Every structure is written in C-alpha cells, then in structure tokens.
Amino acid sequence: MARWEPGAPERLQKAALELFATRGYEQTTATEIAQSVGLTERTFFRHFSDKREVLFHGQDAFVQAFLTGVDTAPPDASPIEIVACALRSAAGLFPDERRSHSRTRQSVIEQNPALREREAHKLAGLATTVADALRARGVGEVAATLAAESGTTVFGIAFAQWIREGERRSLADLSAEVLGELLTLTRKVTVPRTIG
C-alpha cells in the first residue's frame, strides 16, 4: 500500500505539464503521470477526475481573484473601474516566476482543440460570473455584461502578451495597458442615430 505523499497534486501537475510538453497531451496517460513521480494511478484519480483537469486545476482560485477585485472596488466605481480592480486582483495570481509554467501550459492547450475549447469555456464562465457580481453591485444588465466581457477579453489579450518570449512587464501592467487601449478606442466612437 502506497503511503500518503505530501504535495501530491502539485507534483502531479508539474509532472503532467512536463510530459504533455515533451510527449504530447494525447500520448500521455494518467498512469504515466503518476508513475513519473512515484505515485499510483489511483492516487492520480483521487486528486483529478481526468488528465485534462491537471491543466485546469485552480479554476476556483482564478475566479475568486476576479470576484475579490469586484468586491473590493470602491462603492462609487464605474463598471469599467470595477473591472480594472478585478484585473489587478487576478494579476496577483501570476507572479513573474510563474511565467514559464504558464507559457508551457498555454503551449500544450494551443496544440489540442478540446483543450482550447475548454479554455474558451473557462473564460466565458468567468465573464458570466463577473457580470453577475456586477449586477449584485447594482450595475444594469447591459453595462454589467459589456464590462465583464470586456474585462475577460482584456485579460486574455494581456495574458497572451505576458507569456510571449522576451516579455518582462508584469501581468498587472499589461492588463492596465490593454484596458487603457480599449478605453481610448471607445472614446473615439460616435454612434450615428437612425432617422425615422
């Protein structure tokens, strides 16, 4: 009988990412992941429902970071200012020392259509959750949806820049820059009114 090993989920995640990156996601089994760190397949499935979940473990903390930002925004903040607070809060989950890990993880996801779909679903779910939190603060239906969807898009663009080779800026700085670009674009928009 295998004895309890501290830090098993983290060890399994690290091993899985290394194997996915070197051998390919489809070519790597849960058993191989577990065996590579001296654990059993049973231990693997005690922590993760399948090998895909190794890449998406931590989703709750990711969503909570956005919600914490929404909750701690000043009471008189505009919807987009609340989103800016949420982006700053989420960026705290991605310190510079995590950049290499995030880069490798994203590379694995990009090579597999099912994983790309799961990642897109994760971001869509995040936008829905943030929009609900904005509505709970009294933001109107359309404004909450627009702000949340915009915030999710900003995060995605900033994250893609953050993991690029050679990038040195923090995710918080990149998020603020991308959000600033969005605000600049929307300031220049004049919506023509229809006549009739």
Rank of each mutant, 00 (worst) to 15 (best):
T43Y: 04
H101E: 02
F44H: 07
F94D: 02
E110F: 08
L185K: 12
H57W: 03
R187F: 00
D60N: 11
N112D: 14
L171V: 10
E53D: 13
S102E: 11
V154R: 04
R11P: 00
L93V: 09
T104E: 06
A131M: 00
A120N: 11
V70Y: 08
T40W: 00
A91T: 09
G125S: 10
E141L: 10
E32Q: 15
A30S: 13
I82C: 04
P113C: 12
P75R: 15
E81T: 14
R164P: 00
G7C: 04
F159S: 06
D60F: 08
A34Y: 00
A144Y: 12
R98V: 09
I163Y: 06
E26T: 15
V70K: 12
A124L: 13
L87C: 03
Q59P: 00
I157K: 08
E149P: 03
L17I: 12
T22K: 12
G196E: 03
E18V: 11
T40N: 01
A148W: 05
P192L: 14
I80C: 02
D50L: 09
G138K: 10
A2V: 09
H57N: 08
A147G: 06
R98I: 06
R98S: 09
A172G: 05
K122D: 04
T68R: 15
P74R: 15
A144P: 08
Q35K: 14
S89K: 14
A131W: 00
S89L: 07
R168A: 11
L55F: 10
I33D: 00
A114D: 14
R52W: 00
H47K: 07
T29L: 12
A143L: 11
E53S: 14
V130S: 04
A172R: 14
Y25T: 06
D76Y: 12
Q111S: 13
V130L: 05
W162L: 08
L174K: 06
E177Q: 14
L182Q: 10
E149S: 13
E5D: 08
R103W: 00
F94C: 07
V139C: 05
T190V: 15
A90T: 08
